[in-house]
């Protein structure tokens, strides 16, 4: 390894004296690891929170409910208040100037703007 890299100490050493089990023994090379860690969704499912009393706090039931205020409409391009929606692209826009821009944008960009608020058309 290059002296620069060694000097910077950026690489974690392979063998660490304070560990009882070394990384290389725990995760031997060549064996397929990965996918054996449960994702959060799977963890929550395995926790089986439905069986617990509802007044006991757990990871799922502490989530906030939806806002009590009606959701406001923002212009997708500029961020101003958006009174209008383009029926062709479903983009919310603030004024005629922005509308001109919306119509001149290629479809890819329209979809990316929509994806920002998770409203893009997803083809499967």
């Amino acid at each position: 390894m290059e002296s620069e890299v060694v000097e910077s100490e950026m690489v974690v050493p392979q063998h660490l004296s304070f560990k009882r089990v070394q990384m290389s023994d725990k995760y031997p090379k060549g064996q397929s690891r990965g996918r054996h860690w449960k994702h959060l969704k799977q963890i929550i499912q395995a926790e089986n929170y439905q069986s617990y009393p509802p007044n006991q706090p757990n990871y799922v039931n502490i989530e906030s409910p939806p806002s009590i205020y009606p959701s406001k409409k923002f212009c997708d391009i500029t961020g101003f208040e958006a009174p209008y929606v383009d029926p062709r692209t479903n983009i919310r826009y603030a004024d005629a100037e922005v509308f001109k821009l919306v119509r001149s944008l290629p479809n890819e960009y329209i979809q990316r703007y929509l994806a920002l608020r998770n409203a893009a058309v997803v083809l499967k």
Binding site: E63, S64, S67, I68, Y69, S71, F74, L116, R117, N118
Partner: peptide, 19 residues
């Protein structure tokens, strides 16, 4: 404050205190 902007349908910071 308005997670709705990125389509997260939950209360924002100020409302959370009330909740």
């Amino acid at each position: 404050f308005q997670p709705n902007m990125i389509n997260i349908d939950q209360a924002g910071l100020d409302e959370m205190a009330g909740i």
